[in-house]
Protein backbone atom coordinates (compact mmCIF):
# COMPACT_ATOMS: atom_id res chain seq x y z
CA UNK A 1 0.00 0.00 0.00
CA UNK A 2 2.85 2.37 0.68
CA UNK A 3 4.16 1.71 -2.77
CA UNK A 4 0.83 2.39 -4.34
CA UNK A 5 0.40 5.72 -2.61
CA UNK A 6 3.98 6.59 -3.40
CA UNK A 7 3.60 6.13 -7.12
CA UNK A 8 0.34 8.03 -7.07
CA UNK A 9 2.07 10.71 -5.13
CA UNK A 10 4.84 11.11 -7.67
CA UNK A 11 2.32 11.16 -10.44
CA UNK A 12 0.52 14.16 -9.02
CA UNK A 13 3.65 15.88 -8.01
CA UNK A 14 5.04 15.68 -11.50
CA UNK A 15 2.43 18.05 -12.74
CA UNK A 16 2.55 20.86 -10.29
CA UNK A 17 5.06 23.63 -10.13
CA UNK A 18 7.63 23.96 -7.40
CA UNK A 19 5.82 26.33 -5.08
CA UNK A 20 2.69 24.25 -5.08
CA UNK A 21 4.75 21.11 -4.84
CA UNK A 22 6.17 22.09 -1.48
CA UNK A 23 2.73 23.16 -0.26
CA UNK A 24 1.12 19.89 -1.26
CA UNK A 25 4.04 17.90 0.06
CA UNK A 26 3.84 19.51 3.48
CA UNK A 27 0.08 19.02 3.50
CA UNK A 28 0.56 15.38 2.67
CA UNK A 29 3.17 14.91 5.38
CA UNK A 30 0.86 16.59 7.86
CA UNK A 31 -1.94 14.22 6.86
CA UNK A 32 0.39 11.23 7.05
CA UNK A 33 1.73 11.93 10.52
CA UNK A 34 -1.49 13.32 12.01
CA UNK A 35 -2.47 10.08 13.79
CA UNK A 36 1.03 9.70 15.21
CA UNK A 37 1.26 13.23 16.51
CA UNK A 38 -2.28 13.59 17.74
CA UNK A 39 -3.25 10.25 19.18
CA UNK A 40 -6.93 10.65 19.63
CA UNK A 41 -9.70 8.38 18.40
CA UNK A 42 -11.95 11.39 18.16
CA UNK A 43 -9.56 13.30 15.92
CA UNK A 44 -9.04 10.22 13.80
CA UNK A 45 -12.79 9.75 13.40
CA UNK A 46 -13.33 13.34 12.31
CA UNK A 47 -10.39 13.16 9.93
CA UNK A 48 -11.77 9.97 8.38
CA UNK A 49 -15.16 11.60 8.04
CA UNK A 50 -13.51 14.54 6.29
CA UNK A 51 -12.01 12.08 3.82
CA UNK A 52 -15.37 10.49 3.06
CA UNK A 53 -16.94 13.88 2.38
CA UNK A 54 -14.00 14.96 0.22
CA UNK A 55 -14.52 11.94 -2.03
CA UNK A 56 -18.28 12.54 -2.14
CA UNK A 57 -17.88 16.23 -2.86
CA UNK A 58 -15.25 15.71 -5.55
CA UNK A 59 -17.63 13.33 -7.31
CA UNK A 60 -20.51 15.79 -7.19
CA UNK A 61 -18.15 18.56 -8.25
CA UNK A 62 -17.50 16.80 -11.55
CA UNK A 63 -21.23 16.73 -12.26
CA UNK A 64 -22.31 20.09 -10.85
CA UNK A 65 -19.14 22.15 -10.87
CA UNK A 66 -17.55 21.06 -14.12
CA UNK A 67 -20.36 19.73 -16.26
CA UNK A 68 -22.83 22.24 -14.78
CA UNK A 69 -25.57 19.70 -14.09
CA UNK A 70 -27.37 20.31 -10.81
CA UNK A 71 -27.90 17.24 -8.67
CA UNK A 72 -29.95 17.39 -5.48
CA UNK A 73 -29.95 13.65 -4.86
CA UNK A 74 -26.26 12.89 -4.47
CA UNK A 75 -26.79 10.90 -1.27
CA UNK A 76 -28.62 8.30 -3.35
CA UNK A 77 -25.38 7.18 -5.01
CA UNK A 78 -23.66 7.22 -1.63
CA UNK A 79 -26.43 5.00 -0.26
CA UNK A 80 -26.42 2.66 -3.25
CA UNK A 81 -22.69 2.16 -2.79
CA UNK A 82 -23.03 1.58 0.94
CA UNK A 83 -25.86 -0.94 0.64
CA UNK A 84 -24.30 -2.73 -2.33
CA UNK A 85 -21.05 -3.24 -0.48
CA UNK A 86 -22.64 -4.18 2.85
CA UNK A 87 -25.08 -6.64 1.28
CA UNK A 88 -22.42 -8.24 -0.93
CA UNK A 89 -20.20 -8.85 2.05
CA UNK A 90 -22.91 -9.87 4.50
CA UNK A 91 -25.25 -11.88 2.29
CA UNK A 92 -22.89 -13.26 -0.33
CA UNK A 93 -19.76 -13.29 1.81
CA UNK A 94 -17.88 -11.44 -0.86
CA UNK A 95 -14.53 -9.92 -0.04
CA UNK A 96 -14.50 -6.21 0.77
CA UNK A 97 -11.89 -5.73 -1.94
CA UNK A 98 -14.42 -6.99 -4.44
CA UNK A 99 -17.38 -5.22 -2.85
CA UNK A 100 -15.65 -1.84 -2.92
CA UNK A 101 -15.30 -1.57 -6.72
CA UNK A 102 -18.66 -3.31 -7.12
CA UNK A 103 -20.24 -0.57 -5.01
CA UNK A 104 -18.65 2.05 -7.23
CA UNK A 105 -19.83 0.31 -10.38
CA UNK A 106 -23.36 -0.15 -9.05
CA UNK A 107 -23.56 3.54 -8.21
CA UNK A 108 -22.15 4.39 -11.64
CA UNK A 109 -24.79 2.17 -13.22
CA UNK A 110 -27.50 4.11 -11.40
CA UNK A 111 -25.77 7.28 -12.50
CA UNK A 112 -26.25 6.12 -16.09
CA UNK A 113 -29.82 5.14 -15.34
CA UNK A 114 -30.61 8.56 -13.93
CA UNK A 115 -28.62 10.22 -16.66
CA UNK A 116 -30.55 8.76 -19.55
CA UNK A 117 -34.02 10.16 -18.81
CA UNK A 118 -32.82 13.41 -17.32
CA UNK A 119 -30.44 14.48 -20.01
CA UNK A 120 -33.12 16.27 -21.93
CA UNK A 121 -33.88 18.32 -18.85
CA UNK A 122 -32.22 21.50 -17.75
CA UNK A 123 -31.74 23.59 -14.67
CA UNK A 124 -34.81 23.48 -12.48
CA UNK A 125 -36.29 20.40 -14.11
CA UNK A 126 -33.04 18.51 -13.73
CA UNK A 127 -32.63 19.61 -10.13
CA UNK A 128 -36.12 18.45 -9.22
CA UNK A 129 -35.73 15.14 -11.02
CA UNK A 130 -32.50 14.37 -9.21
CA UNK A 131 -34.18 15.31 -5.94
CA UNK A 132 -37.01 12.91 -6.78
CA UNK A 133 -34.48 10.23 -7.65
CA UNK A 134 -32.79 10.69 -4.28
CA UNK A 135 -36.09 10.27 -2.49
CA UNK A 136 -37.03 7.21 -4.55
CA UNK A 137 -33.78 5.50 -3.61
CA UNK A 138 -34.22 6.35 0.07
CA UNK A 139 -37.81 5.14 0.06
CA UNK A 140 -36.83 1.88 -1.63
CA UNK A 141 -34.07 1.32 0.93
CA UNK A 142 -36.65 2.00 3.61
CA UNK A 143 -39.40 -0.21 2.22
CA UNK A 144 -37.58 -3.14 0.66
CA UNK A 145 -37.27 -4.67 4.11
CA UNK A 146 -36.51 -8.20 2.89
CA UNK A 147 -33.28 -6.95 1.46
CA UNK A 148 -32.35 -3.93 3.56
CA UNK A 149 -34.19 -4.48 6.86
CA UNK A 150 -35.71 -1.03 6.26
CA UNK A 151 -35.39 1.46 9.07
CA UNK A 152 -33.81 -1.15 11.34
CA UNK A 153 -30.71 -0.79 9.23
CA UNK A 154 -27.85 -3.19 8.68
CA UNK A 155 -25.77 -3.71 11.82
CA UNK A 156 -22.49 -5.60 12.08
CA UNK A 157 -21.04 -4.87 8.68
CA UNK A 158 -17.65 -6.61 8.86
CA UNK A 159 -14.32 -4.91 8.40
CA UNK A 160 -12.11 -6.00 5.52
CA UNK A 161 -9.21 -8.34 5.89
CA UNK A 162 -6.06 -8.54 3.86
CA UNK A 163 -4.01 -11.73 3.47
CA UNK A 164 -5.81 -13.18 6.43
CA UNK A 165 -5.15 -10.18 8.66
CA UNK A 166 -8.24 -8.41 9.91
CA UNK A 167 -8.08 -4.74 9.18
CA UNK A 168 -10.40 -3.18 11.64
CA UNK A 169 -8.14 -0.69 13.30
CA UNK A 170 -9.00 2.96 13.11
CA UNK A 171 -5.58 3.63 11.66
CA UNK A 172 -6.26 1.32 8.75
CA UNK A 173 -9.43 3.22 7.89
CA UNK A 174 -7.70 6.53 8.23
CA UNK A 175 -4.86 5.68 5.88
CA UNK A 176 -7.19 3.92 3.51
CA UNK A 177 -9.42 6.97 3.13
CA UNK A 178 -6.29 9.09 2.62
CA UNK A 179 -5.41 6.83 -0.29
CA UNK A 180 -8.95 7.03 -1.65
CA UNK A 181 -8.88 10.82 -1.42
CA UNK A 182 -5.58 10.95 -3.29
CA UNK A 183 -6.82 8.57 -5.98
CA UNK A 184 -9.99 10.63 -6.38
CA UNK A 185 -8.07 13.89 -6.53
CA UNK A 186 -5.62 12.59 -9.12
CA UNK A 187 -8.44 11.15 -11.22
CA UNK A 188 -10.41 14.37 -11.08
CA UNK A 189 -7.38 16.54 -11.83
CA UNK A 190 -6.62 14.37 -14.84
CA UNK A 191 -10.19 14.35 -16.10
CA UNK A 192 -10.50 18.11 -15.79
CA UNK A 193 -7.41 18.59 -17.90
CA UNK A 194 -8.32 16.25 -20.74
CA UNK A 195 -10.47 16.09 -23.83
CA UNK A 196 -13.25 14.64 -21.69
CA UNK A 197 -12.96 17.34 -19.02
CA UNK A 198 -12.94 20.15 -21.56
CA UNK A 199 -16.02 18.71 -23.22
CA UNK A 200 -17.80 18.70 -19.85
CA UNK A 201 -16.84 22.29 -19.17
CA UNK A 202 -17.92 23.32 -22.64
CA UNK A 203 -21.35 21.85 -21.90
CA UNK A 204 -21.56 23.90 -18.73
CA UNK A 205 -20.53 27.08 -20.49
CA UNK A 206 -22.78 26.81 -23.53
CA UNK A 207 -24.45 23.57 -24.43
CA UNK A 208 -25.47 24.63 -27.91
CA UNK A 209 -22.01 25.85 -28.81
CA UNK A 210 -20.61 22.62 -27.39
CA UNK A 211 -22.84 20.59 -29.73
CA UNK A 212 -21.71 22.70 -32.64
CA UNK A 213 -18.11 21.86 -31.75
CA UNK A 214 -18.90 18.18 -32.22
CA UNK A 215 -19.53 17.28 -28.58
CA UNK A 216 -22.19 14.65 -28.03
CA UNK A 217 -23.57 16.50 -25.03
CA UNK A 218 -26.02 13.81 -23.92
CA UNK A 219 -23.31 11.19 -23.85
CA UNK A 220 -20.87 13.37 -21.95
CA UNK A 221 -23.40 14.41 -19.36
CA UNK A 222 -24.20 10.78 -18.70
CA UNK A 223 -20.49 9.99 -18.45
CA UNK A 224 -20.11 12.79 -15.88
CA UNK A 225 -22.95 11.36 -13.81
CA UNK A 226 -21.50 7.86 -14.03
CA UNK A 227 -17.96 8.85 -13.03
CA UNK A 228 -19.14 11.11 -10.22
CA UNK A 229 -21.55 8.46 -8.95
CA UNK A 230 -18.77 5.87 -9.06
CA UNK A 231 -16.80 7.84 -6.49
CA UNK A 232 -19.91 8.44 -4.38
CA UNK A 233 -20.44 4.66 -4.41
CA UNK A 234 -16.84 4.07 -3.33
CA UNK A 235 -17.32 6.55 -0.49
CA UNK A 236 -20.53 4.72 0.44
CA UNK A 237 -18.79 1.36 0.55
CA UNK A 238 -16.04 2.77 2.72
CA UNK A 239 -18.55 4.39 5.05
CA UNK A 240 -20.60 1.19 5.43
CA UNK A 241 -17.63 -0.88 6.58
CA UNK A 242 -16.10 1.92 8.60
CA UNK A 243 -19.22 2.64 10.64
CA UNK A 244 -20.27 -1.05 10.65
CA UNK A 245 -23.91 0.06 10.65
CA UNK A 246 -26.02 1.82 8.03
CA UNK A 247 -29.66 2.71 7.72
CA UNK A 248 -31.60 4.75 5.15
CA UNK A 249 -31.36 7.93 7.26
CA UNK A 250 -27.65 8.08 6.52
CA UNK A 251 -28.53 8.77 2.89
CA UNK A 252 -31.41 11.18 3.21
CA UNK A 253 -31.92 14.56 1.56
CA UNK A 254 -29.91 16.27 4.29
CA UNK A 255 -26.77 14.45 3.17
CA UNK A 256 -27.32 15.56 -0.42
CA UNK A 257 -27.61 19.11 0.84
CA UNK A 258 -24.49 18.74 2.96
CA UNK A 259 -22.39 17.56 0.01
CA UNK A 260 -23.84 20.22 -2.26
CA UNK A 261 -22.99 22.88 0.33
CA UNK A 262 -19.40 21.67 0.37
CA UNK A 263 -19.13 21.92 -3.40
CA UNK A 264 -20.75 25.33 -3.47
CA UNK A 265 -18.70 26.67 -0.58
CA UNK A 266 -15.64 25.39 -2.39
CA UNK A 267 -16.60 27.52 -5.34
CA UNK A 268 -17.47 24.70 -7.76
CA UNK A 269 -14.89 23.56 -10.28
CA UNK A 270 -11.90 24.16 -8.05
CA UNK A 271 -10.45 20.94 -6.67
CA UNK A 272 -8.61 22.52 -3.71
CA UNK A 273 -11.72 24.61 -3.11
CA UNK A 274 -13.96 21.57 -2.88
CA UNK A 275 -11.51 19.80 -0.55
CA UNK A 276 -11.51 22.93 1.59
CA UNK A 277 -15.31 23.09 1.54
CA UNK A 278 -15.63 19.46 2.56
CA UNK A 279 -13.13 19.78 5.39
CA UNK A 280 -14.57 23.02 6.75
CA UNK A 281 -18.15 21.79 6.69
CA UNK A 282 -17.24 18.50 8.31
CA UNK A 283 -15.25 20.23 11.03
CA UNK A 284 -17.57 23.14 11.66
CA UNK A 285 -20.34 21.23 13.44
CA UNK A 286 -17.66 19.50 15.53
CA UNK A 287 -15.88 22.70 16.46
CA UNK A 288 -19.05 24.44 17.59
CA UNK A 289 -19.48 21.82 20.23
CA UNK A 290 -23.16 21.85 21.07
CA UNK A 291 -23.88 22.73 17.47
CA UNK A 292 -24.87 19.31 16.23
CA UNK A 293 -28.38 20.71 16.00
CA UNK A 294 -27.09 23.69 14.09
CA UNK A 295 -25.39 21.53 11.47
CA UNK A 296 -28.18 21.74 8.96
CA UNK A 297 -28.79 25.43 9.67
CA UNK A 298 -25.15 26.06 8.91
CA UNK A 299 -25.43 24.18 5.61
CA UNK A 300 -28.60 25.96 4.64
CA UNK A 301 -27.16 29.29 5.65
CA UNK A 302 -24.05 28.66 3.56
CA UNK A 303 -26.13 27.84 0.52
CA UNK A 304 -28.14 31.02 0.96
CA UNK A 305 -25.28 33.34 1.73
CA UNK A 306 -22.91 32.13 -1.00
CA UNK A 307 -25.70 32.57 -3.52
CA UNK A 308 -26.63 36.03 -2.26
CA UNK A 309 -23.11 37.30 -1.82
CA UNK A 310 -21.09 35.50 -4.45
CA UNK A 311 -22.82 32.99 -6.68
CA UNK A 312 -19.40 31.69 -7.74
CA UNK A 313 -18.38 30.65 -4.23
CA UNK A 314 -15.12 31.27 -2.50
CA UNK A 315 -12.57 29.95 -4.97
CA UNK A 316 -14.64 30.05 -8.10
CA UNK A 317 -14.27 32.42 -10.98
CA UNK A 318 -10.57 32.93 -10.47
CA UNK A 319 -9.24 30.37 -12.85
CA UNK A 320 -5.60 29.87 -13.31
CA UNK A 321 -4.47 27.96 -16.34
CA UNK A 322 -0.97 26.81 -16.87
CA UNK A 323 0.15 26.94 -20.44
CA UNK A 324 3.43 25.24 -21.04
CA UNK A 325 4.45 27.59 -23.81
CA UNK A 326 4.61 31.29 -24.56
CA UNK A 327 4.81 33.62 -21.60
CA UNK A 328 1.48 35.27 -21.14
CA UNK A 329 1.09 38.98 -20.91
CA UNK A 330 -1.97 39.52 -18.82
CA UNK A 331 -3.43 42.97 -19.08
CA UNK A 332 -1.70 43.95 -22.28
CA UNK A 333 -4.74 43.63 -24.46
CA UNK A 334 -6.52 46.54 -26.02
CA UNK A 335 -9.17 46.27 -23.37
CA UNK A 336 -8.53 46.25 -19.65
CA UNK A 337 -8.36 42.57 -18.77
CA UNK A 338 -10.01 42.49 -15.42
CA UNK A 339 -10.48 39.37 -13.33
CA UNK A 340 -13.86 37.82 -13.29
CA UNK A 341 -15.95 38.46 -10.20
Amino acid sequence: MMNMSKSLLTSILRRIDEKEKSLYLSLLIAVAILPLVWQSDYVLRIATLCGIYIVLALGLNLVTGYAGQMCLGWAAFYGIGAYTSALLVMRLHASFWLALPAAGLMAAFFGLLLGIPTMRLKNTYLAITTLGFGEIVRLILLNWTDLTRGSMGLPGIPSPSFLGIDLEGKLFYYYFIVVLVIVTLVTMARIVDSRLGRALQAIREDELAAKSMGIDTTRYKIIAFAIGAFFAGIAGSFFAHYSAYIDPHNFAFGESIAVLSMVILGGMRSLPGVVFGAVVLTLLPEVLREAAEYRMIVFGGILMLTMLLRPQGIFGGVQRKKVSQTPVAVGQGKQPLYQNR
Binding site: A127, E293, Y294, M296, L303, L305, L308
Partner: peptide, 30 residues
Protein backbone atom coordinates in the same frame (compact mmCIF):
# COMPACT_ATOMS: atom_id res chain seq x y z
CA UNK B 1 -34.12 35.76 -1.66
CA UNK B 2 -35.49 36.42 -5.10
CA UNK B 3 -35.27 40.17 -5.68
CA UNK B 4 -31.49 40.42 -5.09
CA UNK B 5 -30.98 37.54 -7.56
CA UNK B 6 -33.16 38.77 -10.44
CA UNK B 7 -30.18 38.96 -12.77
CA UNK B 8 -28.21 36.03 -11.33
CA UNK B 9 -28.10 32.65 -13.07
CA UNK B 10 -31.15 30.47 -12.67
CA UNK B 11 -29.56 28.10 -10.18
CA UNK B 12 -28.73 30.93 -7.76
CA UNK B 13 -32.26 31.56 -6.54
CA UNK B 14 -32.95 27.84 -6.60
CA UNK B 15 -30.01 27.03 -4.31
CA UNK B 16 -30.76 30.09 -2.22
CA UNK B 17 -34.34 29.05 -1.45
CA UNK B 18 -33.19 25.48 -0.98
CA UNK B 19 -30.87 26.79 1.73
CA UNK B 20 -33.69 28.87 3.16
CA UNK B 21 -35.89 25.80 3.31
CA UNK B 22 -33.25 23.89 5.27
CA UNK B 23 -32.74 26.85 7.61
CA UNK B 24 -36.44 27.40 8.27
CA UNK B 25 -37.07 23.71 8.85
CA UNK B 26 -34.22 23.34 11.32
CA UNK B 27 -34.82 26.66 13.03
CA UNK B 28 -38.41 25.59 13.68
CA UNK B 29 -37.04 22.36 15.06
CA UNK B 30 -34.71 24.23 17.40
Amino acid sequence: NFRPLRKAPEYASMICTLGLSVVLQNATML
